[in-house]
Nucleic acid binder design. Structure first.
Lengths: 104, 104
DNA sequence: ATTATATATAAATAATTATTCATATGTAAA
DNA sequence: TTTACATATGAATAATTATTTATATATAAT
């Protein structure tokens, strides 16, 4: 029995596709095929992402007939998602990197 | 003026050193030299990490004499940090990846 | 003005992570 | 008991990201 670290939570959420999957699972539990369909992404890639999420403790899964159903490991992840979205929407900034300065 | 995306917040926090720096800044504002000293990490690497954080809108900085002082761009990041830590401590899991199974 | 101090940057390399493609496995239906 | 379907896996490659090293810049002190 292991604890997930906050660093690993950030790592898992820092990939666009993994984040999208997690957000979908925060709405409802889904079979792999449904996720493939809704995202339009290749099945093996989706399976890889789901494997990473599972192995890092962010999701759980069980078989139901021919399908494997995935869900969030904990509702506390929903809170994470909403708090981070809120933080993002609160912070305005002027990027001062070289490229951005050129466009001023 | 731009908005930070939640994806970029996750990306910035998904690096061990950037996360450590952000956690330090959530306690108090710090000069680059202080961060170098407390972490024991090379100055140019710290400066790179600080640059990434700055360019992505997570920190702000100003000059004070010879020093440059960094601070969090918003207190909402403190909430992010604590909510994610809490989520991590709530989730127990049994990793079912190949390597972990071997150790059972 | 020259030197010291603090920080930033650029270029090169190293390391990690993501994606693709081919194939395997497990369950269910015919 | 073969065939179809859903999902998983492994190996190869591609892409991204991190780290190092050397050097530049900006301010302050002498």
């Amino acid at each position: 029995m292991e604890k997930i670290t906050d660093l690993n939570i950030y790592k898992m959420l820092s990939d666009e596709l993994r984040l999208k999957i997690l957000k979908m699972l925060s709405v409802k539990n889904m079979a792999v095929g449904e996720i493939v369909e809704k995202t339009g992404i290749d099945q093996p890639l989706i399976s890889h992402k789901l494997k990473e999420l599972r192995e890092n403790g962010l999701t759980v899964s069980y078989r139901s007939g021919k399908n494997i159903i995935y869900s969030l490991a904990s509702d506390s992840l929903k809170e994470v998602i909403s708090v981070v979205e809120a933080a993002g929407s609160k912070i305005d900034y002027v990027c001062n990197c070289v490229e951005c300065k050129e466009n001023d």
